[in-house]
């Protein structure tokens, strides 16, 4: 399941064994391209990895905390620690590899 983050609150992402955060915005083309892929992955990794979608306009503090300078930015947290980061669109297989490697 994909959780939509509000009020800069990452909540359980910080304590989950593994969490995937998708920093995006409504006006960002590549983010829209990525969205359906992230949705699919959220289903495929159900029970293994927590998925979060962060709109950078609505959650500027989180964007600043994770140093988001371009979107989409994708972050994998492992026990609350940043284990992998990818800036820009990557295809589904590469995204899976990023998550699996972290």
């Amino acid at each position: 399941m994909l959780n939509t983050v509000a009020n800069n609150d990452l909540g359980a992402a910080r304590t989950a064994a593994k969490a995937f955060i998708d920093f995006n915005a409504t006006w960002c083309g590549p983010c829209r391209m990525l969205a359906p892929i992230v949705d699919e992955l959220a289903d495929e990794y159900d029970g293994q990895v927590e998925f979060y979608s962060v709109d950078v306009d609505e959650n500027p503090d989180l964007a600043a905390e994770f140093g988001v300078m371009s979107i989409p930015t994708l972050v994998v947290l492992k026990g609350g620690q940043e284990a992998a980061k990818q800036v820009g669109f990557i295809p589904k297989d590469a995204l899976k590899a990023l998550i699996d490697r972290a």
């Binding site: 915005a25 960002c28 800036v87």
Partner: peptide
């Protein structure tokens, strides 16, 4: 720095 301070598309990244 592409994607973390360097951009190729003003229309895409300007709001940041």
């Amino acid at each position: 720095l592409l994607g973390s301070g360097v951009s190729y598309c003003a229309t895409c990244d300007a709001p940041l």
